[in-house]
């Protein structure tokens, strides 16, 4: 299993298939923004989104989207506020903001958000 920092430093990418995203690290997702949708409900009752943490990766489903590559365009990103699995979720210093760029061949480019990109937690 890789940490988020290892993934970011080594430029590892995630994957997407339709509305399923696979991130090569383990994390609790606090907030997701895709297009105009601000998603914070990841409960089992949610009809919008769900995520599962496995041994080597985290998977997210965005149920309202059939194929995210059709909705997220060239300069757009999917934005996530997350906490790496195992870290103190209540410490804001552990809250990380990342952007996922949808690329060809099912690749998801993972980038830590800099100050230029807007993401209000």
């Amino acid at each position: 299993m890789k940490t988020l920092n290892e993934v970011l430093n080594s430029g590892l990418h995630g994957l997407y298939y339709g509305n399923r995203l696979l991130l090569p690290f383990r994390a609790d997702i606090l907030k997701a923004i895709i297009e105009n949708d601000i998603i914070m409900d990841f409960s089992s009752n949610s009809s919008n989104a769900e995520y599962n943490i496995y041994d080597d990766f985290t998977e997210i489903y965005f149920y309202d989207y059939k194929d995210i590559s059709e909705d997220v365009t060239e300069f757009e990103t999917i934005k996530l506020v997350l906490v790496e699995f195992g870290e103190d979720i209540f410490d804001f210093k552990n809250h990380r903001k990342i952007a996922l760029h949808v690329k060809e061949h099912h690749k998801l480019e993972i980038e830590e958000l800099n100050d230029d990109i807007l993401l209000i937690e």
Binding site: K31, N36, I38, K79, L118
Partner: peptide
């Protein structure tokens, strides 16, 4: 409105 929502502000 659209830009603001994409920045995470409801």
């Amino acid at each position: 409105k659209s830009i603001t929502e994409r920045a995470g502000v409801k």
